[in-house]
Design a binder for these strands. Structure first.
Lengths: 204, 204
DNA sequence: TGACCACTGTACCGGCGGTCAAGTCGCGGG
DNA sequence: CCCGCGACTTGACCGCCGGTACAGTGGTCA
């Protein structure tokens, strides 16, 4: 967790950690404010209500996650010109990043929102939906480039393959947390990489 | 949702639906008891506290899910003697079952628990962990049978492949819910089937 | 007949989400 | 130099929620 430069950021840091370990409904404002050493009125100065907190939390989370993905796959692009090989390198870098997290991945707020949808207003749910669609488009673009050069060995829908990238991460996080083994998530990403390679490689 | 034969089962039915749409922390006992038309004392007659409700909820969920998996893969066994083909049929049956759910998959309680772990006692967390390990063993057994006949085309760890089955379902549910498209989960299972086929088929 | 099961009724506690009005303190600009 | 503004604090209050305690009640079965 990064050092908070302002009380507002500190609230978001504390709230994010609490939401990921206890769920949104299980996170109390009283607990956040005592950890952040502010008063209840101080909290409501920054956020109109708990829903606005959720919105800010999710927005900040998506911005940082997308920045991380940009960084990884841009670096992979620099390392190899071929779209397939570059994507495989990107997945490897991603798996290594997940492996290097000392306590495992802290959890995805998109999954938290998806599993408590009736707790949030339409704005938060739309933001969540848009996040998945953005990731779908991101990976679909790469996969189309790959498929133009390497025709897939099986009759698959590329959009579904794009969703599989996101789905593997979401599923891997659930498994890792539930079983208490931080290695599960990186293993799943490596296995996904194996599928992508198998699907597009002309011969092995 | 099946008709409840007792107030206790009715409580569990209502609580399960609420937990899956609002999270455990977002589900109030007051709301459950008014929907079940009983008093607060009536609730606490059946469950000592909210944690005992969680335990009963999870146990019942796991029992029914395992019965469904038994049924599907037993039927698939009857349809084809070869372990690979039988497993591929099982995955197809599973995808079709998910596709036929009118409002999509209602959600997995294992994921809910994993994303609110600090809300539950050790007993519930152990139950959750055991559920993942049971599924791991279930699928690992089948995969070992398959690999004995069809050597995998890529150097993969079969336990990781077994986890991928569970992970695809968990990830697919998160995606389906977040994006509001019920088709995503069955599509992901069909894609997983494509990988299993590609991984073990001697030639295409 | 009476014990037990599945509840109900009533009263209470402290925590939590949220609201409201007024006050404080530092700091940057006119 | 002081004025205003942003970032809070103080403190009082509301109704819902999780949970406790315990006495009571109607049906059923040995």
């Amino acid at each position: 967790m990064a050092k908070a430069q302002s009380k507002r950021e500190l609230i978001l840091d504390i709230a994010e950690a609490s939401v990921l370990s206890k769920g949104f409904g299980g996170t109390s404002i009283d607990e956040i404010i005592s950890a952040a050493d502010i008063t209840k009125s101080g909290f409501f100065y920054h956020f109109r209500d708990k829903n606005q907190l959720a919105r800010a939390l999710l927005q900040r989370y998506l911005d940082t996650e997308n920045a991380i993905l940009d960084d990884i796959f841009d670096r992979a692009r620099d390392l190899h010109g071929d779209p397939l090989h570059s994507f495989l390198i990107g997945l490897k870098l991603f798996a290594e990043l997940m492996e290097d997290l000392p306590n495992g991945h802290p959890g995805c707020l998109v999954a938290t929102v998806a599993y408590s949808e009736r707790m949030f207003d339409q704005e938060v749910r739309d933001l969540n939906r848009q996040a998945i669609l953005t990731w779908r488009e991101r990976f679909l673009g790469v996969l189309k480039e790959i498929a133009a050069i390497y025709p897939p060995r099986d009759d698959v829908d590329l959009m579904t393959v794009a969703d599989m990238i996101t789905g593997t991460v979401e599923g891997g996080i659930v498994l890792s947390r539930a079983v208490g083994e931080t290695a599960v998530l990186p293993q799943q990403i490596v296995l996904l990489r194996s599928y992508i390679r198998l699907l597009f490689s002309p011969a092995l």
